[in-house]
């Protein structure tokens, strides 16, 4: 497969995952804000922005404005609409490599978020818009899985999706746990915050199945970090991205894959064999920070291996 094609498929997928994450996070927080004190709301929005690596806006910023910027700001490359546009642009470059059903679905989503009367839609019901985005992206994933050959290109799509997810969830956990320390008696106000965190990862119901509705910070951390079966847990994402990298390695028979295999294996092992009490004792912030750094390293070395490699190393002696 052409390196350029792999590159486009990978970023198409990453940007869609990013749009989905931002949309869900914004939606959850708009919803939580409805029955909360303005003070608590403000604190949480600044947490949301931090987790998305946005500069925190002036203290005066009104939450709906912040939410609108997260959804629509075209100057911000990670806003929901920008991300969908970038994803579509990437897919357009490789139209002959993806199925027409995939292209149609992504194109439809693009036209939906770019519709002319969007201001009215947003003013009337932001929730409807954000839900339409997450649904549209879920549909795209379903269409992808059922219409595209599960070959190398599909693996690059999986790789992109899960590396983005691992890194997003780790960032969200990091900012949340910095602001809401573990160990204190969880008070009632914080209760809402923990539900918000779980919902931001579609994890509330899944958590309750595993631990009952008894919300305890260290269990939440354990669930979102170390669960191997829940799709939005960091470990789940790390396992999937490693599987995809292995499959890509098999397909390309690359002779220089040790570094990227080792990095992905190490990330998976650290999450697979980690104990939440030890992780917390060793410093949760440091651990989550290291996960994000490892994701960046995996991205860089996969890039160096499959896309931007120098000619000299690739010419056979």
């Amino acid at each position: 497969m052409l390196s350029r094609v792999a590159d486009s498929l990978y970023w198409m997928s990453r940007y869609l995952e990013r749009a989905e994450h931002t949309a869900r996070l914004t939606d959850t927080n708009l919803n939580l804000m409805l029955d909360q004190s303005p003070e608590a709301a403000k604190r949480r929005w600044s947490r949301v922005l931090n987790s998305l690596h946005h500069p925190t806006p002036e203290a005066a910023a009104e939450p709906y404005e912040v939410a609108q910027r997260l959804a629509f700001d075209l100057h911000n490359p990670s806003s929901v609409v920008s991300s969908i546009m970038t994803a579509r642009e990437n897919s357009r470059q490789v139209r002959e490599q993806i199925s027409s059903e995939m292209w149609e679905q992504l194109n439809r989503l693009f036209h939906e978020v770019k519709r002319a009367d969007m201001d009215n839609v947003w003013d009337a019901e932001p929730h409807e818009f954000l839900r339409a985005v997450t649904e549209g992206i879920h549909l795209f994933q379903g269409v992808t899985d059922s219409t595209m050959t599960h070959g190398e290109g599909w693996q690059f799509i999986q790789f992109g999706r899960y590396i983005e997810r691992a890194s997003n969830v780790a960032a969200l956990l990091d900012t949340s746990f910095q602001d809401l320390p573990i160990g204190d008696e969880a008070d009632v106000a914080d209760h809402g915050e923990w539900i918000g965190l779980l919902r931001s990862c579609t994890a509330f119901e899944a958590y309750c199945h595993a631990y009952t509705a008894d919300l305890r910070p260290e269990r939440i951390a354990e669930f979102l970090l170390l669960n191997s079966e829940f799709p939005h847990a960091v470990r789940f994402a790390a396992d999937r991205l490693k599987n995809s990298l292995d499959a890509i390695h098999d397909a390309t028979q690359s002779r220089h894959a040790e570094r990227v295999s080792r990095l992905a294996g190490r990330l998976g092992a650290s999450l697979g064999y980690g104990q939440i009490d030890e992780i917390i004792a060793g410093g949760l912030h440091g651990y989550l920070d290291s996960i994000q750094r490892q994701c960046a390293q995996i991205n860089n070395s996969a890039y160096a291996l499959y896309v931007t490699y120098p000619i000299e190393t690739a010419i056979e002696a």
């Binding site: 497969m1 052409l2 390196s3 792999a6 397909a251 690359s254 896309v307 000619i311 690739a314």
Partner: peptide, 9 residues
């Protein structure tokens, strides 16, 4: 002339 593929040139 080579093309850049994920499996090398």
């Amino acid at each position: 002339v080579y093309m850049r593929t994920t499996a090398g040139l």
